[in-house]
C-alpha cells in the first residue's frame, strides 16, 4: 500500500477489517459450538434459546469413555455416597456406569476406536513418507525416462474416488482375509498418501542445491551416505510437513474405513456417526468425542500454517 493513505482508503480498510472479523467468527462458530457442547450438561445441549453461558463440566467426557445404562430409579444414597466424583456425575445425568461382575468399569466403544485411528494413521504415515522420500529423491536427482508420465500416473492414483477403489479392494481383502484389520486400512491409506508424499517431497528436495551432495561425493561419500547424511537432514522440515499432512488425511478418512472395517479395526470417523442412531442422541457425548478427535488436527494446523499452501496444492504452488 502506498505510504500516504487517503481518508476514504482508511475507511475502506476499517470496513475490510470488520468484515474479516465477522467472517472469521462465522467460520469458527461451528467449531466453538462443538467445543461448548462437549462441556455442557445434557439438559443444556438442546435448549431454545441455545445456552451460551453455562458452567462447564466434564461429565460428557466421563460418559464418552464408559459404558452406561439408563437408571430406572434413583441410586441408593449409600451407593451414591460411595461412588467416586466422576461416577456421581453420571448418576446426576440419570444414568449409571456399567460394571463387570468384579466391579471394573466397562469402557465404551470410543477409546478402542481412537486407538485404532492412532495405529492406522501413524503406521500408514511412516510408510507413505518413508517410501515417498526415497522415490522423490529418485525423481529429483536422476534422469528417469518418461518422468512426467510416471509422476502423472502416481498422482492419478490419488484422484480416484474412494468408493471406486473400495469395491475391488473389498473383494480382494475378502479373499486374503484383510477386511476389518489394521493392516487392511494401513495399506489403503499408504497407497492413498504415497502419491501425495512423492509430489510434495519432490518439491522440497528440488530446493536442496545439488552442489551439497556433489561436494560430499567428492569428499568420498557414497551416494547412499550423501543421501542419509546430507539430503535427509536438509529436508527435515519438508519431511515433517509431509508427515503431518499424511497423518491428517489418514486420520480424517471416512469412506474406506466405513466399507473395510466394522468392529475390530474400526476407526473413529465411522464410529462417531454410528452413535447417532435411533431416538434422541446425547449430543454432549458426541461433541466430546468429536472434540477429542479434532484436537490433534487443530494443533497440527497451527504447527503447519506456513506449509498449508504447498501441501494443499500438491507442492505445485510454493511461497
Amino acid at each position: 500500500m502506498a505510504a500516504v493513505q487517503t481518508r476514504s482508503e482508511r475507511a475502506l480498510n476499517r470496513i475490510a477489517i470488520a468484515a474479516v472479523l465477522v467472517i472469521t467468527l462465522i467460520f469458527l462458530a461451528p467449531i466453538y459450538w462443538i467445543t461448548a457442547t462437549a462441556f455442557k450438561p445434557r439438559n443444556l445441549a438442546t435448549t431454545i434459546p441455545p445456552t451460551v453461558l453455562f458452567e462447564p463440566e466434564i461429565s460428557p467426557f466421563v460418559k464418552l469413555f464408559t459404558k452406561r445404562s439408563q437408571l430406572r430409579e434413583a441410586p441408593a444414597p449409600e451407593e451414591y455416597a460411595a461412588a467416586p466424583w466422576w461416577e456421581r456425575m453420571v448418576f446426576d445425568g440419570g444414568e449409571k456406569i456399567v460394571r463387570s461382575g468384579r466391579g471394573e468399569v466397562q469402557p465404551s466403544g470410543y477409546p478402542n476406536r481412537f486407538m485404532n485411528s492412532l495405529i492406522v494413521a501413524i503406521t500408514s504415515t511412516v510408510l507413505a513418507v518413508g517410501m515417498g522420500t526415497f522415490t522423490a529423491y529418485g525423481f529429483s536427482r536422476f534422469r528417469v525416462k518418461g518422468e512426467a508420465d510416471l509422476l502423472f500416473f502416481i498422482l492419478s492414483t490419488r484422484m480416484l474416488p474412494p468408493v471406486v477403489v473400495a469395491i475391488p479392494m473389498f473383494l480382494m481383502y475378502r479373499v486374503v482375509g484383510l477386511n476389518d484389520t489394521h493392516w487392511g486400512l494401513i495399506i489403503l491409506y499408504t497407497a492413498f498418501n504415497l502419491s501425495f508424499s512423492v509430489w510434495l517431497m519432490k518439491g522440497f528436495i528440488d530446493e536442496i542445491p545439488k552442489e551439497y551432495e556433489e561436494a560430499a561425493l567428492v569428499d568420498g561419500y557414497t551416494r547412499m551416505q550423501a543421501f542419509f547424511k546430507i539430503v535427509i537432514p536438509e529436508a527435515a522440515t519438508g519431511i515433517a510437513a509431509t508427515a503431518v499432512f499424511c497423518f491428517i488425511t489418514a486420520w480424517n478418512e471416512y469412506a474406506f474405513a466405513l466399507i473395510m472395517t466394522n468392529r475390530r479395526a474400526q476407526t473413529a470417523p465411522p464410529f462417531i456417526p454410528s452413535q447417532v442412531g435411533s431416538g434422541l442422541p446425547d449430543w454432549t457425548v458426541i461433541a466430546a468425542g468429536t472434540f477429542l478427535f479434532l484436537l490433534p488436527v487443530a494443533i497440527f494446523t497451527f504447527l503447519l500454517r506456513n506449509h498449508l499452501l504447498r501441501g494443499m496444492s500438491f507442492g505445485a504452488i510454493r511461497k
Binding site: 467472517i23 472469521t24 467460520f27 469458527l28 461451528p30 467449531i31 459450538w33 462443538i34 491428517i248 486420520w251 480424517n252 471416512y254 473413529a268 470417523p269 465411522p270 462417531i272 456417526p273 447417532v276 458426541i286 461433541a287 468429536t290 478427535f293 479434532l294 488436527v297 487443530a298 497440527f300 494446523t301 497451527f302 500454517r305 498449508l308 494443499m312
Partner: peptide, 18 residues
C-alpha cells in the same frame, strides 16, 4: 488466516455429523 483455514483440515464425516 490460520483460524479461517481450520475448517478444511477437519474430518468431513465427523464435523459434518455435528
Amino acid at each position: 488466516t490460520t483460524l479461517l483455514l481450520l475448517p478444511m483440515m477437519l474430518s468431513m464425516a465427523v464435523v459434518g455429523l455435528f
